[in-house]
């Protein structure tokens, strides 16, 4: 995973709450077995609407999404994160994220920055007044700034550490293999196993 320290880019305001992962990418786009190319499914139902924010020319080339509360609720599909990344987003800002979405973001290298709803509202106003406003997201200092707005954001320390260093979870965990083996030796005999199959 690529390390993430600071990102500077333009932003799109998504003035909707409860944008669930079915809205971010509908299930029909989940049939692929590859890891890339999901940008065509991003917000698929809304992309046909000429009024939709990402269809406005002034929001071309954005890399920061500022969304309403409860972004990424619902399904566990990591494809939602991949679709945002494949489209070009590096940061999503919201006042509340679905838990699994936020976890998936940290794994895949998308920064999910948690801020107060008041900060979201001020960012919306700033971006809409000038869509060319550069938004700076500093993971080192956990701050987001755009125009006159400057605010802290929250992210858990461990996800921040991993993002800053571009670390791979499986590699970290396998360095604790001895702990895993020691735990396995203590598991009770009555715990079930899938093999051999019984019917």
């Amino acid at each position: 995973m690529e390390a993430f320290t600071q990102h500077i880019g333009t932003a799109a305001p998504l003035r909707r709450s409860n944008v669930d992962t079915d809205q971010i990418i509908p299930a029909v786009y989940l049939k692929r077995v590859t890891r890339t190319g999901f940008e065509d499914g991003l917000f698929a139902a809304w992309r046909n609407d000429p009024e939709f924010v990402l269809n406005q020319p002034e929001y071309g080339g954005v890399s920061v999404l500022v969304a309403g509360p409860d972004f990424g609720t619902g399904s566990s599909r990591e494809h939602a994160v991949w679709a945002l990344l494949d489209y070009g987003f590096r940061v999503v800002v919201s006042s509340r994220f679905g838990d699994i979405f936020r976890g998936n973001s940290g794994k895949a290298g998308l920064l999910a920055a948690l801020v107060e709803q008041d900060v979201v509202e001020r960012l919306w106003t700033t971006i809409e007044a000038d869509p060319g406003t550069k938004v700076t997201v500093d993971l080192e200092h956990k701050t987001i700034s755009a125009g006159d707005v400057s605010a802290p954001f929250e992210i858990d320390d461990y996800t921040r550490y991993r993002l800053l260093n571009g670390l791979d979870d499986v590699g970290i965990t396998l360095s604790h293999e001895a702990d895993i083996a020691a735990y396995e030796a203590t598991r009770p005999a009555f715990k079930p196993a899938t093999l051999p199959a019984k019917a």
């Binding site: 399904s75 566990s76 599909r77 990591e78 494809h79 994160v81 699994i100 976890g103 998936n104 794994k107 895949a108 979870d169 499986v170 965990t173």
Partner: peptide
């Protein structure tokens, strides 16, 4: 609980 694909691999 539900997990994403990176966690499935993990």
């Amino acid at each position: 609980f539900g997990i994403g694909t990176s966690e499935v691999e993990h």
